[in-house]
Design a protein around this nucleic acid. Structure first.
Lengths: 215, 215
DNA sequence: CCCCAAATATTGACGGCGTCAATATACCAG
DNA sequence: CTGGTATATTGACGCCGTCAATATTTGGGG
């Protein structure tokens, strides 16, 4: 049913106003931070986009598919924010990435939750979103690889990700700390990872296997 | 219409069968891991407890209140698991706490999500649950205080919590790693925190203010 | 140019949800 | 026994996701 004997749409744009899909995504993104991912309803999204109740089903298989697309955009933005600027000194790269990660979660907490909520969107159904997520994580791995001994890159990037993700999550979910501590925490976390990477005692330990493939 | 004029079990406390509240909580806890916190409906809970659809409202103000009570029980169990056994050597305490934390999240992922999901239960509405959560976190602070210099206890316990919480969250939300790596990761995380606590370079830094009150 | 198959859009309907209102029942104090 | 109160049930409302049927728009081939 996808393509037949003839050519398809003139590519870029769609039939009517061509905009429906983007209008729905924009409406959903706007509503998301107001009502939360759980409270977001397709009917509100459609109305806000000026379309009928059933319009989302012309462009997305179901509600979860629309949420998955929002999540994909989120991972795209997050990944981009982790690698801004060159890498003048690998020194600061980790700290800046941590800061960007925390900032992202604070600026769009509902989107951040959505991106990491298996109950709301099961990434095994949406490989494109899953790949975008993996690519964002890979940015972090590269940053760690710039200073860590090769055999410790996996566990150290795992620890770095856990540390920053845990802090961001706890901040938005429990109100743990205020935004004003973001820079300080980013510095602390980066230093913790660096300190462990430089530690001589641990160098000879951990033959440690793999991190195994993500989602 | 259930049964008529005969008497009920006098039971412990309440009037009819006295057990309705606990039956509802048990039913909810059982369903939680099957359908997830978002998918859990009060109507299913009531039916599973053998009660009418409206029964939950006799014992809980609304759905969120029932979820908050489930979360409280969860924080109670989590807190208890963090302080099992004496503290023979503060050496192992952090590693064992990390292991217990990860194990908890893996054994009851839906409950774990619920406990840390502001969208599902807003702890500012439920101070009892909030206090139980704070008490669990305090266990971690005490463990860190056993080996860290006093002026670094706050930031190091914050880092330890973030590290372990982030790892546990990523595991259950993204299928990052399998259960078989739990013990190894707990050791890694404990070592990272200890290494930073022992690091001489960082000792003179960080005049660092407070962590500020939790939720 | 016109008309048609396909893509897109809308309305109706169904079952499930949380929760309010009204009602019925069981318990204990007096 | 009686009355008041805590508990339990049923009915109703509006919102939800989604299926089915229908209407409308579109671009391309006669």
């Amino acid at each position: 049913m996808r393509e037949k004997t003839t050519k398809r749409k003139p590519a870029a744009r769609s039939y009517h106003h061509g905009d429906a899909r983007n209008a729905l995504l924009a409406a959903a993104a706007g509503l998301l931070e107001k009502v939360g991912a759980a409270g977001l309803s397709l009917r509100q999204v459609a109305e806000r986009a000026g379309l009928s109740r059933q319009a989302p089903y012309n462009h997305f298989e179901d509600k979860e598919a629309l949420l998955a697309e929002l999540a994909r955009e989120g991972f795209d933005r997050l990944g981009a924010s982790l690698s801004v600027g060159g890498e003048p000194q690998a020194e600061m790269a980790l700290e800046r990435a941590a800061d960007a990660y925390i900032r992202f979660a604070r600026q769009a907490p509902a989107l951040f939750r959505l991106m990491f909520s298996r109950e709301l969107v099961d990434l095994s159904r949406f490989p494109t979103t899953a790949r975008t997520a993996a690519s964002a994580f890979d940015k972090l791995v590269q940053i760690v690889a710039a200073f860590a001994p090769p055999e410790r890159v996996k566990e150290l990037s795992l620890a770095a990700w856990s540390l920053v993700h845990g802090y961001a999550t706890l901040c938005i979910e429990t109100g743990l700390e205020g935004e004003e501590l973001r820079a300080r925490r980013a510095r602390l976390f980066a230093r913790i990872i660096r300190t462990d990477a430089d530690d001589k005692r641990t160098a000879k330990l951990s033959p440690c296997p793999s991190v195994a493939g993500g989602p």
